[in-house]
Design a protein around this nucleic acid. Structure first.
Lengths: 195, 195
DNA sequence: GGACTTATATACCGATCGGTAGGGAAAGGA
DNA sequence: TCCTTTCCCTACCGATCGGTATATAAGTCC
């Protein structure tokens, strides 16, 4: 892989730019012109480097998911189930309102906005989410066995609940909710956490 | 308004068909061909009866919102704040999983899927939602003054929380969650309701 | 019967969509 | 230097987008 003319743009940087656009508009509403404009490259360069639009989106989603995974893996290391839940909800506020990006969650957005053709994208976003939910459930099950959660608590229900509140917060963020408002939502959601 | 050739289709029925399509695909991903196909009318008939695509969507959203408003107005008549919250969350499960329609909430979907051009649609969906939240907050404020909610409870936070959980449930429904799963989410969300 | 009004049907508009062909430009290997 | 490989650019493809001009059919009023 040493022959030929070297490419004149940075692939990772271009992918980041693409991710920004996809976050702002969602998969379908983002056009190739939007992408090439933001990435600073031409259409053929895009296709040569990333395949087609769907491939590019998948790579952007990969990068996005990897970043998020780091976050919740770290959150699961908290000593108690309560602390884990707090870290997940409060910490996600930062991710939902990163400066420079439009607020919201790419995965949630991609789950909802879909036509017939992009069903594959939707399915992928959903499956990625279930990975996180499973990890949270297992963490709560451990907490239960350690006596950290009451015996009548359901790790599966609690994990699903946390994920659902996060998704609701993502919708709120996309609707313009401030960090302060999101914090109050998280606070209220954790108010009845089982002890 | 009695001159001229009478129209050969029922406007309300056609609007219902359009609503179904918009619910299935969202505003942007729905094409005029999708609409005319489902409504059983031609393009010029659609434009003569409803204006353009955006007008049609707004009318469909009106009809949708009216139906939903009936639901939450009724829920707010429950005697206690707790009963109101239960009715709102459990009752919304039916609305999120109506048979015949694809699962989810049109307003939530429209909030997230948007490009530059359809920002007006997005803004309208958001403003409609705030109407419901305000009504819920006022109901909770009344409950607080009646001693039905503790003195340290925040009607605003609780209303926002209920709306957020609903939105999360809408995402879950659109991702394929069953009614049973949605019921468990609602149950968990209400577990820590202030007494 | 017209005359008038309104809905329908066909066929089309310019713009944009995702995706690509083809030719020149820039590098390494010989 | 010449060849090969790869990349970049312009220009274009067919399909589809939302929206409409035009002509005809179907009614009420006189």
């Amino acid at each position: 892989m040493k022959f030929g003319r070297p490419r004149e743009f940075d692939v990772d940087e271009a992918l980041d730019r693409a991710l920004q656009v996809f976050r702002a508009k969602g998969y379908e509403a983002t056009s190739l012109s939007d992408l090439t404009g933001a990435m600073g490259i031409t259409r053929p360069s895009l296709y040569a480097a990333f395949g087609n639009k769907e491939d590019l989106f998948r790579k952007a989603l990969d990068r996005y998911a990897e970043e998020r995974r780091k976050f919740w893996k770290k959150a699961l290391e908290e000593p108690t189930a309560r602390a884990v839940a707090e870290k997940l909800l409060y910490g996600s506020i930062d991710l939902l309102t990163e400066k420079g990006c439009p607020p919201g969650c790419l995965a949630v957005q991609s789950t909802l906005a879909c036509s017939d053709e992009s069903e594959a994208i939707r399915a992928e976003a959903i499956s990625r989410r279930s990975e996180a939910e499973t990890a949270i459930r297992q963490r709560f099950a451990r907490a239960k066995s350690e006596g950290d959660l009451p015996a009548d608590a359901s790790p599966g229900d609690l994990a699903r609940y946390i994920v659902t509140v996060f998704q609701g917060m993502a919708v709120q963020a996309a609707s313009g909710a401030s960090r302060r408002e999101l914090r109050r939502i998280a606070e209220t959601a954790l108010h009845g956490w089982p002890t």
